[in-house]
Nucleic acid binder design. Structure first.
Lengths: 201, 201
DNA sequence: ATAAAGTTTAACCATATAGTTGAATTTATT
DNA sequence: AATAAATTCAACTATATGGTTAAACTTTAT
């Protein structure tokens, strides 16, 4: 049993990388095995099938994605620093896992029902605290009236979109990779202002 | 030569549907043939290979996506109605081609360099007129200072994100498909306000 | 009407790919 | 040390899949 955890971890790491990069359909078991530097049979020994391995990776990816965001949404912070923290969290996550957002978006659309099951299993819930916070801000009239769901979707969308649209942005605005990175750094500062301004009264 | 155009069109329509739904890696030539209601050999007779057929579909998809948006961006309209038009254009496009945005995002990230080539070939350019318009608005101080690129990316991101994140939105906010559609209708009205407010002085 | 060109079809091929098997090796248990 | 259990590996299998071929059929041109 000595190497079990190590091998299993190795496989999961490799599978995560390949699946997140290529998606389920684009990934090859052989490629995952090569990446993990093991025999292909090991994948089946530890996870039985491509589908099972994928589901594990997908679930882990969801767990990597949602709770961190929800934690920030429900944190005990004033609105402005919370938005700043949220944007920063997204950009940090992207730096560590550049394919994660697009992977989740692509795969959840391939199997929406399975995705919903997964999310329910992870026990993710509506960010109630944040909704309450927004309602309070609206009542104390520091914030214009807006559906809290819209606000959440806008904030997340504004954070995620430039990350998954990178080739488009680089092309349309004629940026190279360095310029894109620099653009993101600027944006990290500007985006909270945009969001706050959008809901200011 | 009688049926040539019809058959070719049939194939392209089917390929567009399957590729946009499943992506390149997920699509099967047999499935495309079935969808087009023809023999699999015909795909190769008309397009030689899966890759060639895909590239045609992908290029067509880009042509379907970008020019329409850029046309609105560069149209002779005041800022507010232009934003409204832009949001509306996106939502209409999504109604007709629900998989188009996610398809383009996924595939352009799989082959960023090829994507850049394609875009250059279609002759798409930076929306100069719109950039000038924004600069003018900023100088006449009806608009706060913002990088025009940020403004464009934010507007497009806010339009696209709720369309590609549908399963996530339905899950987190416990909506069924009807409620989601209703939410989108509401959003079509609210989003321009959010954007305008975000850049108001 | 006939030949040439274009189109369609069914049967086939080569390869890629997920998955299996059984033996060899290593590790844990007594 | 001996046995049992877990792990690793190379070779293999079945099937899916992109692609080919040659013959049949249809349309166009002369």
């Amino acid at each position: 049993m000595s190497e079990e955890l190590q091998t299993e971890e190795q496989i999961l790491e490799a599978a995560k990388q390949i699946f997140q990069e290529q998606g389920f359909a684009g990934a090859r078991m052989q490629e995952i095995a090569d990446e993990a530097d093991i025999n292909k049979s090991m994948l089946h020994y530890y996870f039985r099938s491509k589908d099972k391995l994928f589901q594990k990776v997908f679930q882990d990816s969801i767990r990597q994605f949602f709770p961190e965001i929800l934690k920030v949404l429900n944190a005990d912070l004033a609105l402005v620093p919370k938005i700043e923290k949220l944007v920063e969290t997204y950009y940090d996550m992207f730096k560590k896992h550049p394919h994660l957002p697009r992977f989740v978006i692509h795969e959840m659309n391939q199997h929406p029902e399975r995705f919903k099951e997964f999310v329910k299993n992870t026990g993710i819930e509506i960010p109630e605290l944040f909704v309450k916070q927004i309602r309070a801000e609206m009542e104390s009239s520091t914030m214009r009236k807006i559906d809290p769901r819209e606000f959440i979707i806008n904030t997340i969308g504004l954070s995620v979109f430039p990350l998954i649209a990178r080739p488009m942005i680089e092309t349309v605005f004629e940026m190279n990779d360095d310029q894109y990175q620099h653009f993101l750094e600027q944006r990290k500062k500007e985006l909270p202002k945009f969001i706050i301004n959008a809901v200011k009264k």
